[in-house]
Design a protein around this nucleic acid. Structure first.
Length: 485
DNA sequence: CCGTTTTAGAGACCTCCGCG
DNA sequence: CGCGGAGGTCTCTAAAACGG
């Protein structure tokens, strides 16, 4: 009876302990599994006692006593002890002696075992929590280090940007002073640009995007100052109209106009490698207009036109376009013819002017009297608004400045007429180059007398450094500060 | 998406006219 | 009469438009 009570109370304790601790114990420590199996086996005993009380009471006593004696020496042999107790019925007399006081020992034994389990589990929980805390601390340390690195990087970038901005500002100042010295005019800088304080910080993605945009300018692209358009227009390249040697102006142009020529050469390289087809590529037409308009002043006298077209053909061949003089002359007449035809008919042309990209150039040439009565065309068919007096054709530098400011997107209706039908936003780089060339030629005639040779060459260099980098839409910055470097 | 049709741009050639 | 410029016309071609 005492054994029964003891067993039932012990089973209650063990079941509670097992419910509380056994799952985690089993999970955390595989070495404790045999011991847990023993506990489960012990939980089964009350049912057995209830079923066969009379028959199995002695048997239970034997089992418990044998188990207690066996577990004292070796925990691993618990199952074997139970089986041995069941089997060894013949040696019951020996085991009766050892049965006295077995309940108290078992209690102590199981309590000790439970305590061990709980201690082990607590130790494992502590180590687990310590590991978690350690990992969390490491993660926080890494985050802190990364934040510090990011802050340092941003600070470095900001500093570099500030330095670049300062350098470009100093270059601008030097160039503007030089231009003022050359031209004798005081340059009115746009207040938003001249007095613009540097922004406190620009996010790096925007800066990198802007730097990557202009393909030809590398170091100057950071300056991002449309200011540079002003000196470009006030400094004039000197293609001398009355030069004794007809070939030299083109050579000079090609030497001192590296970027536009490079552009055109790149554009024409794939075309010029092959014999020129019947169709004139756009770059070729533009080159023809450029050459023809550039030679116009030299052939206004009694010079035979055959020489002119031979020279143009030679220049075209130098640029990679294989066109003979007859073809050049024919093409020139055709484009003028078509231009006038369209102008007379007032036909609505598509704004993109994809098929006739040189219209605005011709428009400008006619308007500026670069192409006057000669040049394979007459102004008889032109609309009246395109006929201007030579006074308006020879614009002072300030008008050129206005023109370029329009080119760069600033809205100004002061010009007598929009340059052409195409909006400013769709203008292409070569168009800008051509327009600048024309304006430079006009302004040159005015300023030739007041510019000595050294200043002229310097101005020429400055002016021709930039046009190809100005981009077509006015969004890219004109990096004319290449000359400073 | 693909084939066909339409349309405008452009090349080539010719003729006419003015001028020296 | 030769030369240069202008005008006209034919033809080709590429892009746009359109329909199945």
């Amino acid at each position: 009876m005492m054994v029964k009570l003891t067993s039932s109370s012990l089973s209650l304790k063990l079941s509670t302990l097992l419910l509380l601790h056994l799952p985690s114990t089993l999970l955390l420590s595989p070495s404790l599994i045999p011991f847990s199996c023993l506990l489960l086996l012990l939980l089964h005993f009350p049912y057995s006692l209830n079923r066969n009380r009379k028959h199995k009471r002695n048997r239970l006593k034997r089992i418990i006593s044998s188990t207690a004696s066996g577990m004292g020496s070796d925990d691993d042999d618990d199952d074997m002890d139970v089986d041995q107790a069941n089997i060894a019925g013949s040696s019951s007399r020996k085991r009766k002696r050892g049965n006295r006081g077995g309940g108290g020992k078992m209690m102590e034994l199981f309590e000790g075992l439970v305590r061990q389990v709980m201690q082990k589990q607590a130790a494992m929980q502590r180590s687990f929590l310590e590991a978690l805390e350690k990992r969390e601390q490491e993660r926080l340390d890494r985050e802190e280090a990364w934040k510090r690195q990011e802050m340092a990087r941003l600070a470095r970038e900001h500093e570099v940007m500030s330095q670049e901005r300062a350098a470009s500002a100093s270059r601008d100042a030097a160039i503007i002073s030089l231009i003022q010295k050359i031209t004798g005019h005081t340059i009115q800088l746009p207040p938003s640009l001249s007095s613009q304080p540097p922004p406190p910080y620009q996010p790096p993605p925007a800066v990198t995007k802007r730097v990557a945009e202009p393909p030809l300018s590398t170091a100057q692209s950071q300056s991002q100052q449309p200011i540079m358009a002003i000196p470009q227009q006030q400094i004039l390249p000197p293609p001398p109209p009355s030069h004794p040697h007809p070939h030299q102006p083109e050579q000079k142009q090609q030497q001192q106009q590296p970027q536009p020529q490079q552009q055109e050469m790149v554009m024409s390289s794939e075309q010029s490698s092959l014999p020129s087809s019947s169709r004139w590529p756009k770059a070729e037409i533009l080159a023809l207009i450029n050459l023809r308009s550039g030679m116009e002043p030299r052939y206004q006298d009694n010079v035979p036109k055959g020489l002119l077209w031979e020279e143009i053909s030679t220049s075209m061949k130098r640029m990679g376009y294989n066109r003979n003089a007859k073809r050049c002359k024919e093409k020139w007449e055709n484009i003028n013819k078509y231009y006038k035809k369209v102008k007379e008919s007032n036909k609505k042309r598509p704004q993109d002017a994809k098929t006739c990209p040189y219209f605005h150039r011709l428009d400008l040439l006619y308007r500026n009297k670069v192409l006057g009565s000669g040049g394979g065309s007459s102004t008889s068919g032109l609309p009246q608004d395109q006929k201007q007096s030579p006074v308006t054709a020879m614009k002072p530098p300030q008008e050129g400045l206005v023109n370029v400011q329009q080119t760069h997107g600033s809205a100004s209706s002061e010009e007598e007429e929009p340059i052409e039908e195409s909006p400013q936003g769709t203008e292409k780089p070569e168009d800008l180059v051509m327009r600048e060339l024309i304006q430079q030629q006009q302004q040159l005639q005015q300023q030739e007398s007041m510019i000595d040779e050294d200043e002229k060459s310097a101005a020429f260099e400055i002016a021709f450094q930039s046009p190809a980098n100005r981009g077509g839409n006015g969004h890219t910055e004109p990096p004319f500060l290449t000359m400073v470097q």
